[in-house]
Design a protein around this nucleic acid. Sequence first.
DNA 1: TAAATTATTGATCAGTTGATCAAATTATAG
DNA 2: CTATAATTTGATCAACTGATCAATAATTTA
Lengths: 207, 207
Amino acid sequence: MGNEKADEKSTFITEARRKQIIEAAIITLNEIGYVKSSLAQIAKRAKVSTALISYHFRDKNDLMNATLLQLITDKTSYILERTQAISTVRDKLHAFIKTSITYHSERSTYNTALIEIVFHARTPDNVPYYKLNDDEDDPLSNELQQILYEGQSKEVFCKFHVSVMASAIQGSIDEYLFNGKLNSKVGLELYSMELIRLFDRAIVNKC
Amino acid sequence: MGNEKADEKSTFITEARRKQIIEAAIITLNEIGYVKSSLAQIAKRAKVSTALISYHFRDKNDLMNATLLQLITDKTSYILERTQAISTVRDKLHAFIKTSITYHSERSTYNTALIEIVFHARTPDNVPYYKLNDDEDDPLSNELQQILYEGQSKEVFCKFHVSVMASAIQGSIDEYLFNGKLNSKVGLELYSMELIRLFDRAIVNKC
DNA sequence: TAAATTATTGATCAGTTGATCAAATTATAG
DNA sequence: CTATAATTTGATCAACTGATCAATAATTTA
């Protein structure tokens, strides 16, 4: 009953329920947004009572944090799996850009839920999540920076400020995730292709 | 008393009160975020009663829309004033990047309030503002795209997809606005300088 | 099977929300 | 100065929020 850590009683049924509730939370976030995603709304979509959510999660914050963790894990593993297999740094960078954008359309529900949480949830000190921005803790950010460093040390890439370049790449990708108009106007194939060409010019060319 | 348009009764005192309430809304958004920015909280900071807000604004949405308009207008004029004066396209692009980033630190309160509204407010159909993304209506987006077109027609810039390049530039800038860690790690002078160099390589070089 | 633990529910709680309204205050006009 | 209109308030409203609790129901254990 009592583990060293907090409360880690993981019955099979408990884990299943938690996943079910988290999945309902994602659907709810996508459908009506964070503000309207009350426990009642989430419970309705999970087809359980509100009290059951309170039973499996300490509070609403706990539920949202668990949901966020699930979303980040999914996105991270999706992109890393398809990036780390590639051998050369330049192709790795291309894959990183391509898969990041592909994830958006393939898991758009997850992506929206992720945005909803990141821009609404706050720490107990009332600091918004979007202002925290992990960096060191973010495996995707680390992977991207490591690709850039490796390219520079192998002299495939030229000299530039890695942090700035990384956030420029990430920002260019994110812009496509947010901007709905762009999404329907340009198309992900064209967008990722143009982005790859753009950063090839900025990174690989004579410097 | 009765104008053609909706209700456009603009006494001097009315306009002053509206501005005062909007200013209080901005401060409140910055201090405690959109979700906690109730009419009561805004009223407290404006040192008026909640009923007075309801008197000057149809509802909370109306207030938030008016606040958003003020924020967008401020940011737009700030950047356009400092960009359109420049004569050559390349310097214009540099100025656009530089002033966009400078605005962040100079009016950080406004910037946070803007983010809070854009990522929380929704249309009556429950469509989040961040998914609308004007594009054609956004003067800043237009200015940036026009700079790129002009540079291409004068053959100062090489050939590339203007929409993609514009959103890459905008995304690279926005990333700096959101990412708190980056903000303290790199510094806006260095960041804008590196960004200018980056896009010079991607835009101006041999293509 | 019987006992004990775990899972689930409906009912209910106090707290906040945005909005409304009559009454009070202030400004404006005649 | 008086009457009329515009401004501001406090009190109050129903609706909804997240959370809690005792009472069942289901499952596990002995």
